[in-house]
């Protein structure tokens, strides 16, 4: 079973800059790490490969330094890595990113399963996975905390706000993975070394992908940030209620009512 895992390099800290003109993040100025949720997707792929065999390809779109995230995926155990990198991709929103990824997936041709982390730690839109599934016309199973594959059928346990449900479909499929699905493995030393010394990261540009240039990068991004600002949180006073639980609860209800909060 061949698996493609879509990963993203995200800024290492919260101390990130914004481009005031485009409203997009300035990624070049910060250190990058592999999006933590994408590690769960890679781990899920590794566990499925242990059971069912096949190849794992990690794919990412980003500036040249996003290669580091792909090397980390190779270190964890991915077999191949592809980086979509071209200045024309710059400023892409989730739709444009999904479009570029869909072109790359069509070029890869052979895959049974696409895995994505549910969301990135910077954008947190959780849109790329579902959009990619739509563009490839694949069934999508989102927010998975468990994946079971039996022959051609796929079953997941989907996390909902108030519980779980079991969903079933068939391969090929796109699945987005929740963080609680697994504990990403610590890559062994020799695997890290191999990722840097023996494995390659293929770089594909816009020219390699073909497709509609109008749908690439900032031009192909309907999401335009009008204004970017840091929300100022006003800190109020803290009142500690002490005493018997029943009495404190009554007092709390009273206060909330007085302030029209209940």
């Amino acid at each position: 079973m061949d698996i493609v895992v879509c990963i993203k390099q995200v800024p290492e800290t919260n101390d990130i800059g914004w481009d005031p003109k485009t409203g997009t993040l300035i990624r070049e100025s910060t250190g990058g790490i592999l999006n933590p949720n994408d590690k769960n997707a890679i781990e899920a792929a590794l566990q499925l490969r242990e059971k069912h065999g096949g190849l794992i390809t990690a794919i990412s779109m980003g500036p040249p330094q996003a290669e580091d995230a792909l090397r980390e995926a190779l270190g964890m155990g991915a077999d191949k890595a592809i980086l979509l990198s071209d200045r024309q991709f710059a400023g892409a929103d989730t739709l444009s990113t999904s479009y570029a990824l869909s072109l790359a997936l069509k070029k890869i041709v052979r895959f049974d399963l696409i895995l994505c982390g549910k969301e990135s730690s910077d954008g947190m839109t959780a849109q790329v996975g579902p959009q990619l599934a739509e563009l490839l016309n694949l069934p999508q199973l989102t927010n998975a905390t468990e994946i079971i594959i039996n022959s051609n059928s796929v079953r997941i346990k989907q996390k909902l706000e108030d519980g779980f449900r079991i969903l079933k479909t068939h391969l090929p499929v796109l699945i987005t993975v929740e963080r609680e699905m697994n504990q990403p493995r610590i890559p062994p030393m020799d695997s890290i070394m191999e990722a840097y010394r023996e494995k390659d990261v293929l770089v594909w540009s816009v020219g390699n992908l073909g497709g509609d240039k109008e749908r690439i990068g900032l031009k192909g991004s309907p999401t335009q940030s009008r204004k970017v600002y840091t929300k100022i949180v006003k800190k109020g006073e803290i009142t500690l209620l002490e005493g018997e639980p029943d009495k404190v609860a009554r007092e709390l209800i009273q206060i909330l009512k007085q302030r029209d909060l209940l």
Binding site: R71, E72, G75, I186, P187, M189, I192, M193, A195, Y196
Partner: peptide
Amino acid sequence: ERRQFQEM
């Protein structure tokens, strides 16, 4: 590469 070892 060294950073990956360090991180690990």
